[in-house]
Computed example of a mutant assay.
Amino acid sequence: MAEFQFQQVDVFSSEPTKGNPVAVVVGADALTTEQMAAFANWTNLSETTFLLRSTTPDADYKVRIFTPQTELPFAGHPTLGSCHAWLATGGQPRGDTIIQECGLGLVPVRSQNGCLAFAAPTLQRSGSVEPFLLRRVADGLKISFSSIRAAAWTDNGPGWLSIMLGSRKEVLALEPDYAALSDLSIGVIGPWDTLQDGKQAQFEVRAFAMSCGVNEDPVTGSLNAGLAQWLIGSGLAPEHYIASQGTRLGRAGRVHVDQEDGKIWIGGVTNTLVTGVLRL
């Protein structure tokens, strides 16, 4: 039986327990894929990650990301939580920007103003959604087809298909038929009304990741990255905004989106809430 450093990191909220937790196993090179998958299934968090030595001189470390059911090439809040744990356990970046290696390739991560932020990776699939599929999404979300203001593929690994509704209220009212959409991962976004909702954020987001084994993810970096690329690129969102997520789950997620020099950065506050030793 081997021992490994372990952290559980809360991501995308300055309030403890109000973000999205990720379990991080540090120095996990000795673990097999089967052991990683079994531990991720046991934690039953939306994602569990394993920090490894990089396999390329261009990266500072490598991460493998597992849901309770499958391995992902990339995910957002696990990227920030894993980087937080790597730094907290003595990781030293080689340059001003930390470079993470994952299944999707190399992902830059930076620290700024008390937050970590990753550069949104290139979308694996973008563009319009087939009308028959969009109608199926509307039926599964129990909304009228006409209430969908815009839609696009925003897939950067988990398979995201995203739609925009007319308001935060519409987003929060959704009661999906998860079984009817079990093979899909759907992101939903709607604008805040400054008079009714306040000014703490500009958009409300929900992430229904059934195809990854998670009905609703509390706060989702990969989805927000894809949403930002779609919405900013099509003029539906400004270059700088804050997205709220997790409200229906009792969370207070805040995702900071910034486009700078052609790159979109997805950031938020990260805090370690649990440290310990894993024995496997």
Rank of each mutant, 00 (worst) to 15 (best):
M1D: 14
V11C: 06
P16Q: 07
P16M: 11
Q35L: 09
A37V: 10
A38Q: 13
A38V: 07
F39E: 09
F39P: 07
N44C: 12
L45N: 11
S46Q: 07
T49D: 00
F50P: 03
S54N: 06
T55Y: 01
D58Y: 11
D60A: 10
Y61G: 01
V63S: 03
P68C: 10
F74R: 06
F74Y: 13
P78Q: 03
T79R: 00
L80P: 08
G81F: 04
G81P: 13
G81Y: 10
S82T: 14
L87V: 11
Q100C: 09
Q100D: 12
C102R: 08
C102A: 09
P108V: 03
Q112F: 11
P121Y: 05
T122R: 00
T122A: 13
L123K: 02
Q124G: 15
S126I: 01
S128H: 10
P131I: 01
L133M: 14
V137W: 06
D139W: 03
R149M: 15
G159K: 01
W160K: 01
G166P: 05
K169E: 14
A173P: 05
P176M: 05
A180L: 03
S182G: 08
D183R: 01
V188R: 00
W192D: 04
W192G: 05
D193G: 09
D197L: 09
D197C: 00
A201K: 05
Q202N: 10
F203H: 09
R206Q: 11
F208R: 02
F208Q: 00
M210H: 07
S211P: 03
G213R: 02
N215L: 04
P218F: 12
A225N: 01
A228K: 04
I232A: 12
S234D: 14
L236F: 15
L236S: 14
H240K: 09
Y241D: 09
S244E: 15
T247P: 12
R248Y: 11
L249A: 03
A252M: 13
Q259S: 13
E260H: 14
D261S: 15
K263A: 15
W265G: 01
I266F: 05
G267Y: 10
G268S: 10
G268R: 06
V269T: 13
G276P: 05
V277E: 12
